[in-house]
């Protein structure tokens, strides 16, 4: 859907670029590269990632 498309931060008018973003779930912390505004840090996570890898990790941590 939003794959390979230019995504602009509405505040800074900058294009989002992949940058390290930290996540936390059930006391575990981890990071991955996510589209992020180089200035203000606004992020974008597409549904494919949420339903795919993120849901997988969530499930693994719940079952850990």
């Amino acid at each position: 859907m939003a794959d390979n498309k230019v995504i602009i931060c509405c505040k800074c008018k900058k294009e989002l670029i992949p940058k390290k973003v930290y996540f936390k779930y059930l006391g575990h912390s981890f990071f991955t590269d996510i589209l992020k505004c180089p200035d203000c840090g606004e992020v974008f996570i597409p549904e494919e990632l949420v339903k795919g890898r993120m849901a997988e990790v969530e499930m693994q941590l719940e079952d850990k």
């Binding site: 973003v21 930290y22 996540f23 936390k24 992020v43 996570i45 993120m54 849901a55």
Partner: peptide, 11 residues
């Protein structure tokens, strides 16, 4: 569209 996730983004 709308979707949600359980892990939180450390902003």
């Amino acid at each position: 569209n709308a979707y949600c996730h359980r892990m939180s983004i450390e902003e």
